[in-house]
Design a protein around this nucleic acid. Structure first.
Ligand SMILES: [Zn+2]
Ligand SMILES: [Zn+2]
Ligand SMILES: [Zn+2]
Ligand SMILES: [Zn+2]
Lengths: 473, 473
DNA sequence: GGAGGTCACCTTGACCGCA
DNA sequence: TGCGGTCAAGGTGACCTCC
């Protein structure tokens, strides 16, 4: 019956509402130094960053960010210590598997039993399997490894969404009024994969409210990447693109790459582009990019004269956006010698020899597709990031598989260059992702086809089904 | 200046609002025989199926569907002939590439020029490249092959969404009020890939309104798969799952598979399941399914007693749903000997020899993953669909690649069974989809990393950027 | 113990073959 | 000329490794 769950920041017995470390977090954040010591009953736990998005949006001042550099690493602090002894437990809690399942069974009773989630001695810590209730989307999920993300207990989708946003931020725009519901209301579950349909702007808004980020990150987000809202939808419909793919220019956000073993090779990137499927494809691609650029630039100042040639010209939105940015930006920005925004990093050739190249790869006709990172490519990237920008040297010629195992055959009348293997050593074959006979994916479709063949064109039977008092209606 | 664009149902000069063929379409549809002869200026074109979803929802009567069997194939009719001479052109139009691009440049002028899209003699027909404005989502896109889908000119995403819904229908539920905006308002563009975020329920609702479907299909959809709306969101929050993965049971919808060459082999499906990643994965999967099933069945009659064991039991939602269906359905349904809903079609072994097996496949360690259909697997499926339900026989042993080309090596401390190739014949290597050094995919991330390294931890520069009068704000 | 990585799974969407 | 197939592109998410 002990409540000592000190490891990993699991809520512990604590009589004071806030610790000194939490005060430090508050200070780092855009002037909101009035922490809510008394939290509402049953409300979400919040870290020091409470509605930091709204706060920083109002200030256009320069932020002195030097004092938040790296002096306070997150893992040194015990985040969010709260007292739970006399409180209704927060939704962002950990609990034992057993207790959490009971909790989900009766949501109404949950608000009555205060500390029973931590009552049994089956201690649930970070890294252990257990249930978790997401601070963002209310989902209660079971994970084999429970851990905090950004200082909050959240589900994997929400944390990954935030992480990917930090890694590659975009400007999301809500097509509705900006108050879209994220997740199921109470404690209900969503099946896997439905979060792709979530409104990204509103999801991100909640993530920014709940997750703990450092001040530098938050300032950049507030300035450049705060989600937009199509507030009235009647204001002549002139909106920015739903999700900005190219704008604004890259800015630093705190996602650190794990250090890889240093290598010696420093081959630069090759500039050979991937072949498109056909020339028609390319024409269509450029045409759509052209139309997108036309519409996206409609609220900036310069619009190019409408081209009326049947062959659409090369897209210019990237160049245009960068030019706009550079003109209005500082000279110091220019001196950084950034990659221009229209640079296209093209992959280099693979060595084909190292274990990186040959670890997990697949074959398409006579093409081996590398799924894992080539050892040399790793060095290429690190060398490039270190400042090496030479681009036009190719790797030495490739080596590859044993000769004689691939032959070109004719499969259909028009497709000629498919592969046929020769050999007799055993190897395991499994289905690929897009194989239509991958029954893991097409299981319901197979069942449907089977049932359809069984039903046939029996319209009487169909009528009976349509009139049946079905439980699914 | 001729308007003769008769082929492919492109809008032609026509003085009467409706043709006889269109009247036939109207008759086939659920009693709505009051077609709107006079359409509003500038409104969308509609086929005979106008709001057929709403109409059929109100009738619980049995539909005599025999007269719409296959007597009126779509391609025999010229759908939706409208007069455009004295009208403002519909949004669902074809136009030449040149004219359409001019149109998109100035959307305000579009409503003034009536017939200029078809003015030049560069005839745009189906199958030709050209611009198209989607009837569903308002997007104007360029395609290398313009064609109708379900009797309407629509973009590929909308038509594919409808087609996939027909192929594998689900019950979508809108998390908002059921009036989500689909696509950009006027004629603005969305970049590729953002339609995954669309509200599927509202998207489907519009598709069902606009696309032309036969009465049988529409009846099944209205009865079983009409999109749900979380209408008030205050009605105690008890909603069905956002998208039904398993309910209701399969029903026939008119998606015909292209006939394949008949084969002779009739190997049945094997029952060997794919291995999960680990036992922990399986535990978590079942736990989440259990919680989903608990919440989803909360509004049906029988709820199983809450299990409180730490190891979650096997999920029962599939069986439960099918049992409910069977009980309330007819005896004729039972006599069809349908596959029970909890049947899991597992893939058979591959032959590894035929051109289907070896056409486009990939390798993972010592596993060759088949991307295209095995010839024998095709036969297996066709044999199964023909009524052969034997399940427990396996294919003959596999053959595979040349010996000696695969060796097991140790890559990291814990991962041991990776592959290394030996050989010296040239082969082309390209990057796979998930390779993090696939620069086609990670281009912006690479640029960001480069810029971040160039900027470094220069807080003055960051402040300058944050205070810059950026055009992106 | 938390941050970052991995990769199977899934949806999409533009093109293409076929009838 | 429209339907169905193909598969690259990219997001998702549960688990995993590393620091
Ligand atoms: Zn969540
Ligand atoms: Zn929203
Ligand atoms: Zn569309
Ligand atoms: Zn909706």
């Amino acid at each position: 019956m002990s409540l000592k769950e000190g490891q990993c920041g699991v809520p512990i017995e604590n009589d004071c509402g806030k610790s000194e470390e939490e005060m430090i977090v508050d200070q780092t954040l855009s002037g909101d130094c009035a922490p809510t010591v008394e939290q509402e009953n049953g409300d979400r736990l919040r870290g020091g960053v409470k509605a930091g998005n709204d706060d920083s949006n109002d200030t256009d001042e320069a932020l002195d960010l030097s004092f938040v550099s790296h002096s306070i690493p997150f893992k040194k602090r015990r985040l969010m210590p709260v007292q739970i002894s006399n409180r209704i437990p927060s939704s962002a809690h950990l609990s034992s598997e057993k207790a959490a399942k009971e909790t989900m069974m009766s949501k109404e009773q949950q608000s009555q039993q205060s500390t029973t989630h931590f009552a049994d001695s089956q201690r649930m810590g970070c890294g252990r399997p257990g249930f978790i209730t997401c601070s963002i989307c209310n989902a209660t999920k079971y994970y084999s490894h429970v851990q905090r993300r950004f200082g909050q207990f959240s589900c994997e989708p929400c944390s990954k969404f935030m992480k990917r946003f930090l890694k590659d931020p975009k400007i999301f725009t809500c097509m509705q009024t900006g108050s879209c519901q994220i997740g199921k209301p109470a404690g209900e579950q969503e099946p896997r994969g439905v979060s792709v349909s979530r409104c990204k702007a509103c999801w991100l808004k909640i993530c920014l409210e709940k997750f703990i980020l450092d001040a530098k990150t938050r300032a950049v987000i507030d300035k450049f990447y705060s989600p937009k809202f199509n507030s009235e939808k009647v204001g002549n419909g002139k909106d920015k693109n739903y999700v900005s793919q190219n704008l604004p220019p890259p800015l630093p956000l705190p996602v650190r790459k794990r250090k890889t073993k240093s290598e010696t090779a420093t081959y630069p990137l090759a500039s050979e582009p991937f072949p498109k499927r056909s020339a028609r494809h390319q024409v269509a691609l450029e045409a759509n990019m052209e139309t997108c650029a036309t519409n996206n630039n409609s609220n900036t100042n310069s619009i190019s004269s409408p081209t009326s040639s049947p062959q659409p010209s090369h897209p210019t939105s990237l160049k245009k956006s960068l030019a706009l940015w550079r003109d209005s930006s500082s000279a110091e920005y220019q001196s950084k010698d950034l990659y221009p925004d229209d640079t296209l990093f093209e992959p280099s050739e693979e060595c084909g020899k190292c274990t990186y190249c040959l670890h997990r790869n697949y074959m398409k006709a006579n093409v081996v597709v590398v799924k894992e990172s080539c050892k040399y490519k790793k060095c290429i990237l690190s060398g490039l990031l270190a400042g090496d920008k030479e681009e036009n040297t190719l790797l030495p010629p490739l080596i590859s598989l044993t000769p004689g195992i691939l032959k070109t055959v004719q499969v259909s009348k028009s497709i000629k260059s498919d592969a046929q293997f020769e050999g007799d050593s055993p190897i395991n074959l499994v289905l690929g992702n897009n194989n239509k006979y991958n029954n893991k994916r097409n299981n319901r479709i197979l069942k449907r086809e089977w049932n359809e063949a069984a039903i046939g064109s029996d319209s009487n039977f169909l009528n009976e089904i349509l009139n049946a008092n079905s439980p699914f209606l």
